[in-house]
């Protein structure tokens, strides 16, 4: 296989695959945060902050995939 083509294929795959897990994960985080906010509306502020923290940690994984995309894309070009 042509190394350039392999790099481009890997670039696309890396981000696509990296987005799956965090996508599900962020869904779970936000869903549970909403439940928590509904159950205890007086804690909503704190839950929201924690939710953003959770999203940030989860999202980082997808963003590493994006980074990998840039690296592989650079290899291809």
């Amino acid at each position: 296989m042509d190394p350039q083509a392999a790099a481009l294929l890997g670039a696309g795959l890396s981000y696509g695959l990296a987005a799956i897990g965090p996508g599900i994960g962020i869904g779970i985080v936000v869903g549970n945060a909403v439940q928590a906010m509904v159950r205890q509306p007086e804690m909503a502020g704190q839950v929201r902050t924690t939710m953003f923290l959770g999203i940030a940690f989860t999202e980082a994984l997808a963003l590493f995939g994006l980074l990998l995309f840039f690296i592989l894309f650079g290899q291809a070009g």
Binding site: L67, F70, I71, F73, G74, Q75, G77
Partner: peptide
């Protein structure tokens, strides 16, 4: 324009 231009 190194190959890692975007992320360095």
């Amino acid at each position: 324009r190194s190959s890692l231009f975007l992320i360095l």
